[in-house]
Amino acid sequence: MPGAIELRGVTLVRRTQEEFHYDLKRTVFDLLRGRMRAIRRRTVLDGIDATIDHGEKIGVIGANGSGKSTILKLMAGVLEPTRGTVRTQGTIAPLIELGVGFEPELTLEENIIFYGVLLGHAEALVRASVDEILDFAELSEVRDAPTKTLSSGMGARLGFAIATQWRPDILLLDEVLAVGDERFRRKCGARLDRFWDAHSTIVVVSHDMEYIKRTCRRVIWVDHGTVRFDGESAEGVERYLKSVPSGEYVRGEELIAVASRHARGEIVVRGTSPTDQGRKVFLIREGRRHWVTSPAWYEKAGYGWDDIVHVDDTAILEVPEGDVLA
């Protein structure tokens, strides 16, 4: 029996962002002058192979821009591979960029019906579920209000509620666990757990390594558009964290100087020291180092892996110790 999702030699070549602006005028002039600008392209994914079985829960990890979300979009059918094949089996609920795409002038109810049908459900089924969806999103009172009156958080809540109303065969999650406030986030988590316990196949893209390790038995580590690791999640996360993403090496006073030059006056550093066991991550703020104990802290503080500066062993010791950030 084939897997729920199969990627075979998936390569994706896309136009680079600089090519976004086209116009007829320039094209006609270029034609007249006999020199068409060659289209610049970039290989975003290069020969990705993966088979995900029915009911499997898989984490996709990797640095920003490594191609994680692109893989999710290929699975969702939003993008098509340049070479290779993507096969999926069953219904898909893509939880990608929630809340984008509502029509601001229409009421919540009208948007729910529109969105539900776009997601592939029958209109009658969606109509029958409007109450439940609004109820879950805690937006029942504003049912007939134009959607433009919602805050972005409310929009994301509504998007989540619609996309998760029906149990999909395949659930694609792109960092959406940060929906709404803490309480609502827990509610979303509970709803997803239902899918998690059921037979849904789940693919989750996240920077939250603890979450990945806790919820997925298998991870795929994507690096520069290729699969660097595919296997047991604890090992994958460890290898990923050990790999040194691009960054600068600085030390001592220089570290504090770099931190104060940083837009927020802070800098995240990573390194080892003789007294600390293994690699640790610290935040340098106002000349003091704060120990970052949980990867979840990155999400909360809004830092990405690109904000990490790598230091050698002794550098961290030269900065006075501060508190612990969880």
């Binding site: 979009k73 939003v78 990608i96 960029e97 984008v100 795409g101 776009l118």
Partner: peptide, 9 residues
């Protein structure tokens, strides 16, 4: 575009 980028249509 914003819809095309998140749902297969």
């Amino acid at each position: 575009g914003s819809l095309l980028n998140k749902i297969a249509l």
